[in-house]
Design a protein around this nucleic acid. Structure first.
Ligand SMILES: [Mn+2]
Ligand SMILES: [Mn+2]
Ligand SMILES: [Mn+2]
Ligand SMILES: [Mn+2]
Lengths: 229, 229
DNA sequence: TGAGTAAATTAGAAACGCCTAATTCTTATA
DNA sequence: TATAAGAATTAGGCGTTTCTAATTTACTCA
């Protein structure tokens, strides 16, 4: 199947939106995600439906077909392997990798990706803790995680995943000892939308707005505990 | 300057055609190089002239402006650094790198290229022996080389550059001990369009059609002897 | 249950990069 | 130097991806 980079981005967006807010994905959600206007989405959905990559019930939302999901998983595999490669081999910071991977994901060959995966020793997660789909694109589900904000004071947990692509926020978090694999203790949860934590690799206590704390997932082991179907 | 991948390919094609057959570049040459029809070239030349990237005298051919030449050199730098990287770090064969680099050259950032160059220790040539423009895009000229076919019988020379992108031919040459850096002795030049050479790293004599021998450049040192303006 | 509103779709247009067919220009040669 | 061949350009059109403006549909709540 010969798809344009733009079509691949639509399929990836639909996959991501479906995973994080289940039920059918709405036209306006896709428009927001891809920074285009809703009529643009409608016309693209028609083309994708034509190619049997999505099922589109007008006015009722859209879902990926099995084929569409495979394409999305492949693009996500490219994206996350590229991110892992950029940090591990080219000295990129985890705040810099997203935009580069978002372009390259559409232009690297299967050969390139296979050799990258081999060279990196088949990594299972990217620098943000996001799981990397396997080469056979198994229907692996995203790991279930608990947001930092849902732990109690005095609990000690290991950061597992940071679901945020804002470079400034990522740089701030890293500078304060917060990234996948680091251990932190919850110190205080305020009623005014702030959470204070003690990263073990960092001297002082760090305060985060709940909006940010909601995007940081953690658990007791640091492992990605997959919710197998 | 925000240029499309297609525009970059036109500028690169004009640069390459100008270098290998001097004088103004013709519409039909570009059409052949990029595998499009002449009217497509004409309409693109208008757009490039509009952006001051080329000077186009209708019916008289086209030339790059200084700006256009800079863009072309940048794309060529991307292409050749990517080729070097693919062979040196990802285990690609020199017959496989061209197509991959031809796509990626338009989608990698300056940051990516800078880090690649640093990691490879600022290589000066790519796997085919083609010179890599420096980061400041100096007006470096292509090295002057002597085609294998222009040496005399019994001369021993070092292969410097192989100006051929056909994967089958490249695989054949490598399998028979012919690639940049290898030493060969000219054994026979036949009147029927064949040249026989003895690669020093290979047991038996290899015969090549003159069309292929013309694309293989060699000299006594193996160095790229630049013809400085 | 019947507005009224918010979301989605349709209509129409533009920029891009490509094509074929028709026309115009250049140049070589008779 | 006139003409004919060949090269290049113009004319007109198509598919892609985007937009704004107009219209249609679905859903909420009075
Ligand atoms: Mn993308
Ligand atoms: Mn990521
Ligand atoms: Mn290219
Ligand atoms: Mn090369």
């Amino acid at each position: 199947m010969m798809l344009s980079a733009v079509m691949e981005d639509y399929l990836k967006a639909i996959y991501v939106l479906h995973a994080e807010a289940d039920g059918n994905v709405k036209t306006s959600d896709i428009a927001t995600q891809l920074d285009v206007k809703p009529p643009t989405v409608t016309s693209m959905l028609k083309k994708l439906a034509e190619k049997n990559l999505v099922n589109h019930e007008p006015y009722q939302g859209v879902e990926l077909t099995p084929t569409g999901e495979s394409v999305a998983l492949e693009v996500i595999r490219h994206h996350r392997l590229l991110e892992a490669y950029l940090t591990e081999e080219l000295g990129y910071d985890w705040s810099e990798v997203h935009d580069e991977a978002d372009r390259l994901e559409h232009h690297v060959s299967e050969t390139f990706i296979d050799r990258l995966a081999t060279r990196l020793d088949e990594p299972r997660v990217d620098p943000h803790g996001d799981p990397i789909p396997s080469a056979d694109l198994d229907p692996v589900e995203d790991p279930s995680g608990t947001a930092l904000i849902d732990f109690s004071v005095d609990e000690t947990v290991i950061i597992q995943r940071v679901r945020n692509q804002d470079p400034e926020i990522l740089r701030y978090l890293e500078a304060h000892g917060i990234k996948p694999g680091t251990r932190v203790t919850i110190k205080e949860v305020t009623p005014i939308g702030m959470i204070s934590i003690q990263p073990h690799s960092y001297e002082t206590i760090v305060s985060l707005p709940t909006s940010v704390a909601r995007s940081i997932w953690a658990n007791q082991t640091g492992e990605a505990s997959t919710s197998v179907p």
